[in-house]
Amino acid sequence: MAEFENHEVLVDATQRTYAEGYRKLDAYSPFPVHGLSEALGRRKTRVPLIVLLGGMTGGLGGYFMQWYAMRVDYPFNIGGRPLHSWPAFIPITFELTILCAALSAIIGMLALNRLPEPYHPVFNVPEFRRASLDRFFLCVEATDPKFDLVRTRTFLEGLRPESVKEVTS
């Protein structure tokens, strides 16, 4: 794992590491860095799809619930209106769409990030504490096919880091 002084060096180093062929990378920074996820080679996430499905489930489910209750299960004449009174169903349909979409966004995001994760080896490096203050880190994981303890360390040292540390698991 390499430690960097500022975000520009980090993005630059990430791009070069990715170009070198490393794929199992992760970068850590105290604030969102523009262009970093592209440099890490991250593709589009599946969160939007999950949100869409969640929203549709909520919307259709909400409408069906009302239709079933009002039309099929317990038909009840309210002010002479038709049993299937769609305008009255819209607010609840809308609310449930939003609710389910929002919940599936949060749950989907957590699930795809494999969170919550109580233990992660990067915290074994004492300097890593500064990742939430003023330092920027790039980590190449040992499971990467190109990973080699010596060669990867030499490569990272060539990227103008402040330091290069080995993460013990």
Binding site: G79, R81, P87, A88, I90
Partner: peptide, 12 residues
């Protein structure tokens, strides 16, 4: 637009 429709439709 829907808000207006819903209110007027409900009031009838």
């Amino acid at each position: 637009s829907f808000g207006q429709l819903l209110i007027i439709w409900s009031g009838n």
